[in-house]
């Protein structure tokens, strides 16, 4: 496909393109570079030369400090304890409801689908006070269980909607054959529809992992105790604990970003497809 640029004019145009696109990319990556560099500098260096200066030192100690003294280890464990079950359960619930609603002519199925989607579109603010009070009443306030619960409930509508669109597109002949063979809905779901939905599930898992892992609002609403905080709210704690020790805060930010960056790099294609899947439907 790639044609060699012919004249000097074409070469100039190509050069200009890369200058603009490359310039913007560098500008975009600069803050990331900066935080990585800052996380590797010593406090004395940052204090003496400023956060914006070139590095004059190198240390890995900030990571240890954020990880152990800053409580990020515990916070990371908490985040994963919340995120992994929340993603699995939400997608499981989303998949079964999308299956029933898309593959069977149930009464009010479109209404149910849209009501579920509408729940996900609500501004979370309207739920904050009642959810925190409800968690208190249920005796699960300030537990990771409450956070898992609200993440599942609030995300469900979106995943159901996306999976509905995906399952709807599967030809009905496959299923009809199975029905004639006497397969139950459960068998049809597990053996036929679910395997065909795998690409959408992969995309949504990558997306859901990032969303739940990166959430701040729900975690500061239902969790109070420092040792139960997931990584995002722990990072805010770090910001208060290490005021103007930018080397430690930077290390903490890098640590907090590693899991989602890893998921993104590992599932890049699914991830980007997932974003488009949700929106361009």
């Amino acid at each position: 496909m790639s044609r060699r640029p012919k004249g000097p004019q074409a070469a100039l145009k190509t050069g200009g393109y890369h200058l603009v696109a490359g310039g913007i990319s560098v500008l975009w990556l600069l803050p990331i570079l900066l935080v990585v560099v800052t996380s590797l500098r010593t406090f004395d260096d940052v204090a003496a030369n400023g956060v914006g200066s070139l590095p004059h030192s190198f240390t890995l100690g900030n990571f240890a400090q954020a990880w152990i003294d800053g409580g990020e280890f515990q916070a990371m464990v908490n985040s994963l304890v919340v995120t992994i079950p929340a993603v699995i359960i939400t997608l499981a619930l989303g998949a079964i409801s999308a299956f029933a609603l898309s593959r069977y002519d149930l009464p009010f199925r479109r209404t149910v689908l849209l009501v579920m989607l509408a729940g996900n579109l609500l501004p979370p603010q309207i739920l904050l006070v009642p959810v925190s009070k409800m968690a208190e009443m249920l005796g699960i306030y300030d537990t990771l269980g409450a956070l898992i619960g609200v993440q599942i409930g609030f995300g469900l509508g979106f995943y159901t909607f996306v999976l509905y669109g995906f399952m709807r597109a599967i030809p009905s002949e496959i299923q009809q054959a199975a029905v004639i063979d006497g397969a139950t809905p459960l068998q049809i779901f597990w053996r036929i529809i679910l395997p065909l939905t795998r690409p959408a599930l992969a995309s949504l898992s990558a997306l859901a992992f990032t969303w739940v892992f990166n959430d701040l609002l729900w975690s500061i609403t239902v969790i109070r105790t420092d040792t139960k905080m997931p990584i995002t709210s722990a990072l805010l704690g770090l910001q208060g604990q290490y005021v103007s020790q930018w080397n430690v805060i930077a290390a903490g930010s890098v640590i907090a970003a590693i899991p989602t960056v890893a998921v993104f790099l590992r599932f890049q294609r699914h991830f980007v497809a997932g974003l488009a899947l949700g929106a361009v439907k």
């Binding site: 975009w28 935080v35 805010l236 910001q239 103007s244």
Partner: peptide, 29 residues
């Protein structure tokens, strides 16, 4: 390059930029 920040949490994003905005941070430098 343009997409990478999307995977960061907004809190991490905020902390990165808070350092940039400091009186001795990158913008002022």
């Amino acid at each position: 390059a343009l997409f990478t920040p999307v995977v960061f949490s907004l809190v991490a994003t905020a902390l990165i930029w808070q350092a940039i905005y400091q009186p001795d941070g990158l913008v002022n430098t």
